[in-house]
Design a protein around this nucleic acid. Sequence first.
DNA 1: CTGTTAGCGCTTTCAT
DNA 2: ATGAAAGCGCTAACAG
Lengths: 340, 340
Amino acid sequence: MDTRTTRSRTARDVALLAGVSTATVSRALNTPDTVDPETLKRVRDAIKKLRYVPHGGARSLRSQRSRMVGAIVPSFDYALYARTTSALQQCLGEHGYSVVLAEHHYDLQQELQVTRQLIEHAVDAFMFVGLDHDPRLFALLEDYGRPFVLTWGVDSDHRHPAVGFDNRAAGHAIASHVLGLGHRRIAILSAPLEGNDRGRERVAGFRAAIAEAGAPAPHVEYVQRIALGAAEEAMHRILKRKQRPTAVLATNDVMAVGAMLACRSAGVRIPEDVSITGIDNTDLGATQVPALTSVRTPIVEIGTAAAEQLIARLEGKEFAANQVMGFEVVVRGSTARPKA
Amino acid sequence: MDTRTTRSRTARDVALLAGVSTATVSRALNTPDTVDPETLKRVRDAIKKLRYVPHGGARSLRSQRSRMVGAIVPSFDYALYARTTSALQQCLGEHGYSVVLAEHHYDLQQELQVTRQLIEHAVDAFMFVGLDHDPRLFALLEDYGRPFVLTWGVDSDHRHPAVGFDNRAAGHAIASHVLGLGHRRIAILSAPLEGNDRGRERVAGFRAAIAEAGAPAPHVEYVQRIALGAAEEAMHRILKRKQRPTAVLATNDVMAVGAMLACRSAGVRIPEDVSITGIDNTDLGATQVPALTSVRTPIVEIGTAAAEQLIARLEGKEFAANQVMGFEVVVRGSTARPKA
DNA sequence: CTGTTAGCGCTTTCAT
DNA sequence: ATGAAAGCGCTAACAG
């Protein structure tokens, strides 16, 4: 069964109604200033009357560009990527590009797969999250000449265009805050690190700061999935250890809030009994009682910068391939000096 | 500058390498069982070797279908739509469809605009949120023969396919819970209602329950945007009123948590001084102290059902156009009997 | 400024 | 089971 039988209006129909050729219809659409104002009006009227929408497939077949950009994120669920993508869309939309969004659930194989699918749909350029990717992904993008930008990290070797911030430095900064309060027995609550360079860098930053301060090496507790429930379970495991830490550094806010839930149900007071920190400064963390100490990361700026870079490249303009943005530790009620 | 110069592999290249015609390449891809197993293998090897990805534009030009589905939501930011869309993608992905996501920021004009853009990109079918839409949207979809499904509501007149739940009943249910606790002086904290049938229905449900209980008509305070800060401001306005309500019904969890923030900063205790309720049962609300009383809505089920319906329609199978799902009031610590 | 023409890469008859 | 050939709707090159 063909559900598409109704599609009929083509440039030909518009041309007929306006009394011009299809070439003129095309010009009216793409380079209106090269068309006589009167003709232009006739064409536009015909377009409106027929509710004509050009066929993007035919267009991309011919012109080799679709004006679509793919944004491939780990998960829609995590509010951060939603905000970044939203900013990306906003900016690209203003320049006439559509955004095709896909998620890969932290599976780099699936990331490769969906990218292939989007290349098939003639997507012009890509935004990816993080620096860790399957080598075949880069080969594919190279093969098909698709510009792309990595986000949420800094590629210090400048092997690929990337806009983001230094996750290791962010981890270092918030760990330093906690160490500065006097904590020495510290645990790390870590998201799964496979194919997750952001998490890995953050943990590396935690460890570096702890080592520099001369404190004992931290226990690292891994969380199965980036979800409140999983983080809560992991925190319960931490709380059951004989040497309970006085501070817990989580690799992101979701992990940290999960830890808070565990403390509440176990009757452990924050920050009196244990200090907790997140990273990313989400609403989820900021609205807790006590409010979560975290790192404000450049969520929206990343999306905007990524969009601007891609637009520049698609239009053959100059662009800054590698951009490093700032972050800021936001101290709130979930951290305090350790007792005695 | 052409950034796409690298694109070269076509069905022709594959055909040449495999020693067959392009027709056979096409068959190998689309109807493999009609191709000799040996030939099939040769073609598949060639495809792999050349890293060939078919050109979707050409395909959709010829076959009139792109295997893309558009999901058009008010905002990526609000976690709910992200979850629904995620479920939609999951389900469609398993059937070989890609999802193109777009947001319209509660602007029905812009919704029409992006839909047009997606039709241009040959999107086969659509999911929209809510029942309120520009009449021209339906005309456009009709014109181009694109199946669509509305979500997050029930179209009791069955004018359009819709899967969701009864927002009015949900509002009625949670208001009844609050009334049952003995509250009579009630305020409503409402999201902007323009083009937002979900909110409107929820408020209608609140009002109906209040009227049925014989309580005085509620004050309705409008929030500028669906954002914590805006809701917090609105709640401060409520708290400044001479007759302070004993309960506040918010049209969703974000509004409710914003109200909680205002109470905290104003030293108003929840639930002793004021009870607060949300709708949608998000993590944001569930993790507050006290935890937010809310309505669990069928977030994931909606996405899955929408996907299943669209797949069925695209494949010409039977489908249930209108599906109504359940919800459930989740009572937590943010509601209690009013004092004295 | 506008029309004619060719062809983008693919699928689909129609032959064989 | 496979190939030859036509053509989907559009844009770019070339005339005029």
